[in-house]
Design a protein around this nucleic acid. Structure first.
Lengths: 204, 204
DNA sequence: TGAACTGGATAGTGGCACTATCTTAGAGCC
DNA sequence: GGCTCTAAGATAGTGCCACTATCCAGTTCA
C-alpha cells in the first residue's frame, strides 16, 4: 500500500500522514527504494487510533506519542494500559506523597479492592480532595453506587483488552471505553437534573 | 475598585482583563469619567467564573460567552442551567429528530423520570448510540447502577442552585459539579481496572 | 518519454487566547 | 500652571498547536 492509498483508506490527507510520520506517531513504511515505501494494515490501524484519540478524546500529539512509542517498543500490555490511564486521567507526576482520602479508602474497602498505591489511586485521592475543596461532599451511599458501577465494567474491559489481538485495538478500547463511560455519566446526570427540575416545577 | 486592583484581587493580568472586557465576557465597569472606571465585587466573581470555566473545565471563550450573556440578560435560572448543560455536554444542535435508544428508555422507566424530549435526553440517546456503535454494550444492571448514582445527586445539586444567591455562583456550581462527577467516574474506573488487573495477575 | 506520484525538507496557515505597544486624557503634586 | 504618573481604550503582535502547501529530485509505468 502506498501513501496515497493509505490516505484514501483512512480519509486522512497525505500531508497529514507525512506530518505524523515526521512526528514519529506513525512508524515509517517498508522502504522499497529511495522514492517508494509501502504501508500495511498496521498503518491503517495506527492512523485510525491516532485520529480517534485526537478527535474523540481530544488528546494532543505529545500525549498520543507517549502512548504509541510504548506500543512500538513492545512493552507488556499492562504497562501500556497504565500509560493510557495516565494520559486519559491527565495525571501529572505527583509532587511528593499524595495524601489519602477517607472517601477513597472507603471505596477500596467497600469493593474489596487491593489497598495499594498506584497512579490511578493517587489520581482518585487528588480528585476527591479537589471535590471537597470546592464544597462537593461525597456521601458513602453515592460512593457505593459509583464504585459498584465501575467495578462491574472493569472486569469486562480487562477481559477484552487481555484477549486483545492488536496493540492499537487495545489502546483504542481502553481509552475510548474510559472516555465513553465518563461521558455517559455526564449525560445521565444532565437528564437526571432536567428530570428533577421538571418535577420540582410541576409540583411546587 | 480600579482595573489594577481587580487584577490584583483575581491574579489576572490587566491585559487579560481588558481582553475579556473587549470580548464581552466581563461587563464594563462603572465609568467615572473618560479615563477611569470602577469595578465591583461582581466583577471579581465573574472573573473567577471565567477562569474556572477555562482552566478547570476547558471551555473556550465562545462557550463561556454563550453562558454569561444569558446571565447578564437576567434569564430565569432554569434557562441558564439548560445552557450550562448544553455547553458542558458539548451538545451541537440536532439535525432532525434524534432517535430514541432502548437503553435511555429503560433508564427513564427505571428511575421514574418524566419521559419527555429535552436537550439532555437527546444527548443521552446520541451518546448511547455512539457507545453501541463502537461496540460497548450497556447491560441493564449497569444502567441501573449509573442512573441510581446520578439520581441521588441531581436532587441535591438542584437544591443548591435553586437556593443560589449569585448567578455566577449558580453557573460555577452547576458546571463544576457536572464536570467533577464525570471526572470522578473516570478516576474510579481507573482504580477499578487497576484493581482487577492486580487480582488477575496475583491469581493466574 | 513524459505525466504522475513518491519521500524528504522547509516554509506557511489559521485559530485561539492572550500580551504588548501606543495614544490620549485626567489626577495629584509642587 | 506645569510636570509626571497612571488609567482607559484601541490596535497590533506573539506563541502555540495541528496541520497544510510548496518545492525538489528521483522513479515508475502507460
Amino acid at each position: 500500500m502506498q501513501l496515497k492509498e493509505l490516505s484514501n483508506a483512512t480519509g486522512t490527507s497525505p500531508a497529514s500522514i507525512k506530518f505524523y510520520l515526521r512526528e514519529g506517531l506513525l512508524p515509517p513504511g517498508q522502504s522499497v527504494h529511495a522514492t517508494r515505501a509501502s504501508y500495511s494494515t498496521e498503518h491503517v490501524k495506527r492512523l485510525e487510533l491516532i485520529r480517534a484519540l485526537r478527535q474523540i478524546i481530544g488528546l494532543n500529539l505529545d500525549q498520543i506519542r507517549s502512548i504509541v512509542t510504548l506500543a512500538d517498543d513492545g512493552v507488556p500490555h499492562l504497562a501500556l494500559l497504565a500509560q493510557v490511564q495516565r494520559v486519559v486521567l491527565k495525571l501529572e507526576p505527583a509532587v511528593g506523597e499524595v495524601e489519602r482520602t477517607a472517601a477513597a479508602d472507603a471505596v477500596v474497602r467497600m469493593r474489596g479492592w487491593p489497598d495499594v498505591r498506584s497512579d490511578a489511586r493517587d489520581a482518585l485521592d487528588r480528585h476527591v480532595a479537589a471535590m471537597q475543596h470546592v464544597g462537593i461532599d461525597l456521601p458513602l451511599e453515592l460512593l457505593d453506587r459509583y464504585s459498584g458501577a465501575v467495578d462491574a465494567i472493569a472486569g469486562l474491559d480487562l477481559e477484552l483488552t487481555a484477549a486483545g489481538d492488536d496493540v492499537n485495538d487495545i489502546i483504542l478500547t481502553a481509552a475510548v471505553g474510559m472516555h465513553m463511560h465518563s461521558q455517559l455519566m455526564l449525560k445521565l446526570l444532565a437528564v437526571a437534573q432536567a428530570s428533577h427540575a421538571i418535577r420540582t416545577l410541576e409540583a411546587p
